[in-house]
Design a protein around this nucleic acid. Structure first.
Length: 666
RNA sequence: GGCGGCGUAGCUCAGUCGGUUAGAGCAGCGGAAUCAUAAUCCGCGUGUCAGGGGUUCAAAUCCCUUCGCCGCCA
């Protein structure tokens, strides 16, 4: 490891709050790594910020009836505060909407452009006259040319799974306003990844120790061959392309976002009053540039971004890309857009930050996806943090308080047993170092818990509650050793459990030991203890029940997601009501004959309280035509009409423009 | 459609460039202890390592194939 380390964590997109999946994927590992390097006295900074450009933000803003700026202002603050509450430390937490970043991204673009790594291409793209904007592929819907599904997206038909070009869609419409988009010619700038492939391959080749997921990804891409990739978009939100002929174009988010790492470092340098300080990292080949990301970001950080840096030429390239897999929520995925998540800010309203830091650390998705589960969380807190770690600290300090009037007893002539305990502490320091350096953070926290267990075993073996009566010197050696271990634990846990570390140090009434000195006893005889407190309160069943219920409610609200396949099983048609009569002896039922286009059907529906038979006749309605026939009150019903209901209201679905009876609805 | 990944004890996960009786934590069962947040400590695992086939003296680990889940890409 080089002595200078620049850590970045993926810029969170400013369209929603942070959830546990984000944390486990990169923010928590980055923080643990950063805190550890700090303890090792390395020259290290941790840089991050929100990614605030791109189409989704403009659309989200529109939906919320806000300006994009208002939206990102809100989430910038929200995300920054959430991180702070969890103890995630950034030297600088910037944002990609600031002028500094715009300027920086533009000069990056210009330099790469001057070096001929950028070309232009004219293409035709759909433009929505209603929304007055070009539409990204996935914001166009239409009929799939292959399977006739009506709900195909511009990039892919989810019904038949085929990949599409938006121009091939039959009767395309704008997903946002429903209007009909038109093809319009536009010009875009493309980054010549193809030119850079040989250099990229040469660069990646020696990175043997990188994680498999990263290497595999790259191999796949190289095999297919890289192609020029569009780096501009027609949009009025983002970093304007710094060319006269590029009016109305902005840089594509994936191009400007990683440049944000540099901008954020520059902002940091300005903030600390040393404007050139950022160069010490970005322009020095002795810098180890470490990008913490989730696996969804591998392509950009292992291929595109290094290619950009090579093309630019001035900056260091990534040294490490410890990409994590995903943390799922009990089987399913976390999803910001679907609001299926355990949100960090809500979590912290209820639980101490270290509980989460522990539960996530010990189950980080380092090799494969892992699950977050509330029962599991409770067990980890109660059985591991509270019982093993918390209890060891507590039994030790309360022993000192009770037996030795809160003063640390002497350690004269340590026995082999005592020395073994201290050696275990020292050994654990080494294990944690090795594991963290190798980006196996999960093993580091496990080693810490092993130390706590070993300490409990030592306590039990040496039985101070007995030796206090028959061998006072031995007892005082034991307790002294335990105190030294508590002190060591406090230092070693700092990267993972910084809040708990502080609490313990408060109880010992001492500053944190230097990392390199952990293992050498340093708490002096007669040291007075500070105020004792319980480290971890247990999480009770009721709390967990509530949290699980919350998740359940959110799931219920979002209903089951069905595929277009499932949906298209339902056939619906426009129909006219030919005749209608109330079914006798019922309150709600109406019997109708409807024309569904060359075929008449008898349909029974429970709408009599809302529509009289007279007003129904002649109405054009929507009928499900392939529903299995059913008998209602002995009358056969051959279809179902559609109506919207809420509370005590009901409204029939109809059509807002004349169309022939029998027209399919989809 | 192509490419890739994953599927290991009741639960959460290690292990996989082939090699002794497949591991840990939690849960469970039995015991010890009582300083401590009824916490701790000791002992106890007959799992088709998703199914099937193959290579090998030897496979959870390599190859083929089926099933299930997931991701990436024109």
């Amino acid at each position: 490891m080089k002595n200078k380390i620049l850590i970045t964590s993926a810029l969170p997109y400013a369209n929603g709050p942070i959830h546990l999946g984000h944390l486990a994927g990169c923010y928590l590992p980055a923080d643990i790594y950063y805190r550890y390097q700090k303890l090792k006295n390395r020259d290290v900074i941790h840089i991050c910020g929100t990614d605030e450009n791109g189409v989704p933000i403009t659309i989200e803003a529109e939906r919320d009836k806000k300006s994009p700026q208002e939206l990102v202002d809100f989430y910038y603050k929200h995300i920054k505060e959430s991180f702070e509450r969890l103890g995630i430390v950034h030297d600088n937490f910037s944002r990609t909407s600031i002028p500094l970043h715009h300027k920086n991204a533009q000069s990056f673009f210009k330099k790469v452009n001057d070096k001929n790594y950028i070309i232009t291409k004219r293409t035709k793209q759909y433009f929505c006259p209603e929304c007055k904007r070009f539409l990204a592929d996935r914001y166009i819907e239409g009929t799939c040319p292959f399977c006739d599904s009506k709900e195909a997206r511009g990039d892919q038909c989810e019904n038949c799974g085929r990949w599409l070009d938006p121009e091939n869609l039959i009767s395309p419409r704008c997903k946002i306003c429903g209007g009909t988009p038109i093809l319009r010619e536009t010009e875009h700038w493309y980054f010549r990844l193809d030119l850079l492939q040989p250099e990229l391959e040469k660069w990646i080749e020696p990175k043997k120790h990188w994680k498999n997921n990263v290497k595999r990804f790259c191999r796949g891409w190289f095999k297919e061959g890289l192609v020029p990739r569009a780096i501009t978009r027609d949009l009025n939100w983002g970093v304007p392309v710094p060319l006269e002929e590029a009016d109305g174009k902005v840089l594509y988010v994936w191009f400007d976002a990683p440049i944000g790492y540099i901008s954020s470092t520059m902002e940091w340098a300005l903030r600390i009053g040393k404007p050139d300080r950022w160069k010490d990292y970005w322009l020095d080949s002795e810098t180890s540039l470490v990008h913490f990301i989730g696996k969804d970001n591998i392509v950009f950080h292992a291929m595109v971004w290094p290619a950009m840096l090579i093309a630019h030429g001035d900056y260091v390239l990534p040294s490490e890309i410890p990409a994590n897999e995903f943390l799922n929520i009990k089987g399913g995925k976390f999803s910001t857009s679907r609001k299926r998540a355990v949100w960090l800010h809500e979590f912290l309203d209820i639980f101490e930050p270290d509980l989460l830091r522990y539960a996530l650390s010990v189950n980080l998705p380092e090799n494969k996806d892992t699950d977050f589960d509330w029962d599991d969380f409770q067990k980890k807190v109660n059985n591991e943090l509270a019982n093993i770690l918390g209890n060891f600290v507590n039994r030790t300090i309360s022993f000192v308080n009770r037996v030795y009037s809160s003063k640390v007893p002497a350690a004269v002539n340590l026995s082999a047993e005592d020395r073994e305990m201290l050696e275990y502490l020292l050994k654990t320091r080494g294990v944690i170092e090795d594991r963290i350096e190798a980006f196996e953070l999960k093993k580091g926290i496990k080693a810490l818990m092993e130390l706590a267990k070993e300490a409990n075993r030592y306590f039990d073996r040496t039985k101070p509650w007995e030796t206090i009566k028959e061998d006072k010197e031995k007892c005082s050696r034991t307790i002294n050793t335990c105190i030294q271990v508590v002190d060591g634990l406090a230092a070693l846990m700092e990267p993972y459990l910084p809040f708990t570390s502080k609490k313990i140090l408060g109880m010992l009434d001492i500053e944190r030991n230097e990392w390199e000195k952990v293992g050498e006893p340093r708490i002096p005889e007669n040291k007075k203890m500070g105020k004792i407190e319980i480290l971890f309160k247990k999480v009770d069943d009721e709390r967990i029940r509530i949290e699980k219920e919350k998740l359940g409610i959110e799931e219920a609200e979002m209903v089951e997601i069905i595929s277009i396949d499932e949906f298209s099983k339902v056939e619906m048609k426009v129909a006219t009501v030919e005749s209608a009569e109330k079914v006798e002896n019922t309150q709600k039922l109406v019997k109708m004959v409807v024309d569904i286009g060359g075929e008449k059907r008898q349909v029974v529906a429970g709408i009599a309280e809302f529509y009289s038979p007279e007003e129904l006749v002649g109405k054009k309605i929507i009928v499900v035509t392939n529903l299995a026939p059913a008998k209602i009150k002995g009358i056969e019903s051959n279809g179902m009409l559609l109506a919207a209901t809420k509370d005590n209201e009901l409204a029939l679905l109809t059509i807002d423009k004349p169309i022939d009876v029998g027209a399919k609805v989809s």
